[in-house]
Design a protein around this nucleic acid. Structure first.
Lengths: 215, 215
DNA sequence: ACCTGAACACCGTTCAAGT
DNA sequence: ACCTGAACACCGTTCAAGT
């Protein structure tokens, strides 16, 4: 039934993996399936729906590692890793994750894991959705930055202390110049960011309980 | 000289603003300028270069509000607002910000403001670039989520306590269910997120100075 | 129910030619 | 130096027709 659909989505993902999102045409997918372009439409809808289907399938395969006995921050970290790995294995997905809110529909299992981790951390119920959105924004953003090239090498350090074109002085760049030329370990940076976010969550919990005591 | 180029980039931005990125074709831009499609190429390069030029121009216009006497967190907040406003006024830009590392080249003034704010906050020089990337990832991600629909309404709360398709239980969703149906004030959420990030920065500074005392 | 083939209205980009 | 016009190799999607 949805068998052919699954085959088509798989073919589309393979095309995107191998040749990029720009080469993903209905015609290319059809050729890979061994069928005429028009034969795709009854199964996956038009191209926009095909893209939705692709990220849906991808997120559905994102297995949430249970292990509910592990500490909340380990579980959170594991979910973050899984997401980033997904963006690394399928760069075309990173940009799509922002535009298709279908995200939530299929990633609902992973989002539930994050809710549970935040609850275990002591985040009040009312704040859990916001923190999930915040962490999700950062994690998806990090994956998209890597995949898309926002963390471009070298481009960050304008040679010298002023912007070449405008001649405007750049005192901030000057002060941290020595740290702009170092090669960045993106795995380590992601870890450091997650550490800071974990501490942020702990601090939010602590602030809340302090307020409760004095209130 | 670059006069015509500027005119073309302006026309391209107008087309994208009015009719979306999907309707941005070389032909549409050319028509708006009152010229043949091929006349664009010497001035802005091919379509990929045109897109680079568009976000370059946009980011160049992002005026960094100086006011260097204001507290560091106010300045940081103002930069964050400016960026989000940009994504709101030009939704097509949000997705492009991840893929084009040209970002940094033109936004270098704003990045310098953020460096200075972080330095004033007491962040050690070596950590400033990482925190800037982290904040930038979140801010651009937030703008992209809004523009692209990742923060989709309603889709977040699977009706009931289980995923309809798989039948898997969703205990996290169940516990926070009442907070998933409330209408979100995205301005307030952005403010709350920035507050938490500010506290995160303060905590990082405090942790560092404590370590220095005991070391 | 599922697929094909021809056709339509678009693309980005090339090339040779015009002034 | 700057632009045009015709052409090429693509797109997504329609429609009527085939089995």
């Amino acid at each position: 039934m949805g068998d052919r659909r699954e085959e088509i989505l798989g073919a589309a993902m393979a095309v995107a993996d191998e040749r990029g999102l720009g080469a993903l045409s209905m015609r290319a997918v059809a050729e890979r399936v061994g069928v005429t372009p028009m034969a795709l439409y009854p199964h996956v809808g038009d191209k926009s729906a095909l893209l939705d289907g692709m990220i849906g399938k991808l997120l559905g395969e994102l297995s949430a590692p249970l292990d509910r006995d592990a500490p909340w921050d380990d579980r959170l970290r594991r979910s973050a890793y899984a997401f980033r790995a997904l963006g690394r294995d399928h760069p075309w997905a990173a940009s799509l994750l922002f535009s298709r809110s279908a995200v939530s529909a299929e990633a609902v299992g992973t989002i539930d894991e994050i809710y549970l981790a935040l609850l275990d951390a002591g985040v009040p119920d009312s704040e859990v959705p916001r923190f999930e959105r915040m962490l999700g924004t950062f994690i998806v953003g990090y994956a998209a930055s890597e995949a898309g090239g926002r963390f471009g090498a070298g481009a960050r350090n304008p040679r010298g202390r002023r912007d070449e074109e405008s001649g405007k002085p750049l005192p901030g760049h000057t002060r941290v110049a020595e740290w702009l030329d170092v090669e960045v370990d993106w795995d380590a940076e992601f870890d450091a960011d997650l550490d800071d976010l974990r501490r942020m969550i702990e601090a939010a919990v602590a602030a809340r309980s302090t307020r409760a005591e004095h209130g």
